[in-house]
Computed example of a mutant assay.
Amino acid sequence: MIDIQNITKVYKTKNGELTAVNDVNLSINKGEIFGIIGYSGAGKSTMIRLLNGLEKPTTGSVIVNGQDIAKASGNELRSARQKISMIFQHFNLLWSRTVEENIAFPLEIAGVPKAKRAQRVEELIELVGLKGRGKAYPSQLSGGQKQRVGIARALANNPEVLLCDEATSALDPETTESILQLLLDINKQIGLTIVLITHEMHVIRKICNRVAVMEAGKVVEQGDVLRVFQHPQAPITKNFVSKAAGETQETQASLEQILTNYPSGKIVKLTFAGATTEQPVISQIIKQFDVVINIVHGKISTTTGGSLGTLFVHIDGDKQQIQQALQFLKQHEIQMEVIEHD
């Protein structure tokens, strides 16, 4: 569906050249939700502008459904952009137009007859959950409702790809969840390919099938979301994953206190993924080995690829029994990390 080949984007500034995207290769499948995550300055916003043709790469190609967007121009580029829609962090609605008129705007530009426009607008209002709000103006809507209008407008011309540029960053957590669920529902209903740009790993965890992690213009890691959460490789990915898993500074401070209070035994971080989250390993260890286990902290979250659980436990007892218990965990394909003092 989307094939990004050796993309590099270099800007010329008064201080010299700035490489915003550096030799990136990505392949995005038709109908999947693909996340691109990175902090400010990572190059993800430039990537999204390269995807919709607002920027031309210095080198490389952006193939969307067999067409190289990087080489398209004029009518060819305008036609290609009609199949690549976008929603934004700050909604970008027309404040003097009603909900219906905002959604109808791209249809007007495309020359769709009035009767067909009205029918399509009605369908989209129903799809995004805004029935009864068609005559309202943006100033009369909540943040979540504004983003729903933005999504409806982006879908007006039946695009093949929807680009989401930090689409939930301006929303509160509860509204963020509802918008992400809407995007997930739309993806399932119409098979729309979604490329989601964000700096929040919980957004990736919630709805994405695969993810690419960007840092300093490069993709430093990519893969299935569940695999990346279970086995993060790059330091920046480990940082994103730990924050999404709720491992805050308070958690680390609590672990340090636990290590102080329990000088014997081991504090172990266990990570469960997929089917392993349903295994009763703690009770099995207690039955099979002469050890005492205290659960310090735990959390289970879900990804599109399955459940992901993190559990911190204190294991105490005979050293040999503890080692046998740890070996038991390894044999059951549970990722394990013994926590030591910093």
Results as ranks from 00 to 15, higher is better:
P280F: 00
E174Q: 12
Y137L: 09
E32M: 06
I282M: 02
N102D: 04
F289M: 03
S45L: 00
Q249L: 09
Q119V: 03
L196A: 05
G223A: 10
V149D: 09
A234C: 06
E32V: 10
E166L: 03
D185W: 09
T304Y: 04
G53A: 07
Q67M: 14
A325L: 01
G38H: 11
S254A: 06
V292T: 11
K116S: 03
L326H: 03
G134E: 15
T276K: 02
I28H: 08
L226K: 08
G305L: 01
N65D: 15
I4G: 03
Y11D: 03
A253K: 12
F289N: 07
I84K: 01
E123D: 10
N52G: 04
A152S: 12
K71V: 00
Q284A: 04
T8P: 09
L270I: 09
I63K: 05
E126Q: 15
A170P: 14
L255D: 09
E174P: 07
L163I: 07
L183I: 13
Y39A: 11
V219S: 06
L77N: 12
Q320L: 10
I194K: 13
Q321D: 10
I87M: 06
C164I: 02
Q89L: 04
T193E: 06
S264K: 07
H332L: 10
P280C: 00
A156P: 13
I28P: 13
L326T: 02
T168E: 02
T13M: 05
E126P: 12
L162E: 07
G43P: 01
M1G: 14
I33G: 11
L184T: 11
Q189R: 14
C208S: 08
Q252R: 04
L183S: 11
E247G: 00
I286E: 09
E250V: 10
